[in-house]
């Protein structure tokens, strides 16, 4: 188990090299097999912490490559293991502690302003060559888009507002939003069926 601890520290150290989370074998196992509560938090500032935090929205495209989310663009919907279709949304940010960021994404009806859904999780910002920190792919939000029992419009091919917030442990916070169009994978009728306004779970999609 000592070896595992050393490995964990080594791995964590490597993460620190790109400006992401660093810890000291948090939750590793000791000889008894119990988790070790030896968390040593080490912040990893990205940019200048004395200036306001900045944020850009990014998303997975259809091939799961990361792209900057632009106004009016299409946002690819991805299937989830137990059903449903997700927009995979992340953050590019700077001027905050990239090791303690809570990432919140919401999909908002652009017509009536209703918040359709929210996903919040810890994200790990990895410093890019331009000095911004970008959510590691495994810490993007998975924002459920369909099916959506309470929607008043189709959830595909229609514009919706994607709102994103990042906030670090010290309260540095930035908000951004963009209006974009969720899009089912081409030819996947099951997706468009489940994303139709009048779809009810359990009904048949041919």
């Amino acid at each position: 188990m000592r070896l595992a601890l050393l490995c964990a520290i080594w791995i964590a150290g490597c993460d620190g090299g790109d400006g992401s989370v660093v810890d000291s074998g948090v939750g590793d196992a000791d000889e008894s097999g119990d988790a070790v509560d030896a968390f040593v938090y080490k912040p990893c500032p990205i940019g200048e912490l004395t200036t306001p935090a900045e944020l850009q929205i990014v998303n997975f495209d259809a091939a799961k490559a990361i792209e900057r989310t632009q106004p009016s663009q299409e946002i690819a919907l991805h299937p989830a293991p137990q059903g449903g279709w997700m927009a995979v949304i992340g953050a590019r940010a700077r001027n905050l502690d990239g090791c303690s960021v809570k990432l919140t994404a919401a999909i908002v009806d652009a017509v009536d302003g209703q918040i359709i859904g929210v996903d919040r999780r810890d994200t790990r910002l990895v410093v890019d060559t331009d000095g911004w920190g970008q959510s590691s792919p495994d810490t993007f939000t998975n924002l459920q888009v369909c099916p959506q029992l309470t929607s008043t419009r189709d959830m595909h091919g229609q514009p919706y507002i994607f709102k994103v917030i990042v906030e670090d442990a010290d309260g540095r916070k930035a908000t951004a939003e963009v209006t974009a169009v969720p899009r089912c994978p081409p030819g996947v009728n099951f997706c468009t069926c489940e994303c139709d306004r009048d779809y009810v779970l359990g009904s048949t999609c041919s």
């Binding site: 964990a8 948090v26 939750g27 988790a35 968390f39 929210v118 996903d119 919040r120 029992l149």
Partner: peptide
């Protein structure tokens, strides 16, 4: 193991 204390949150609306 390297990120041992995550929190996941979500919302769900009634019709």
């Amino acid at each position: 193991q390297s990120r041992p204390t995550p929190t996941y949150s979500g919302t769900c609306r009634f019709p």
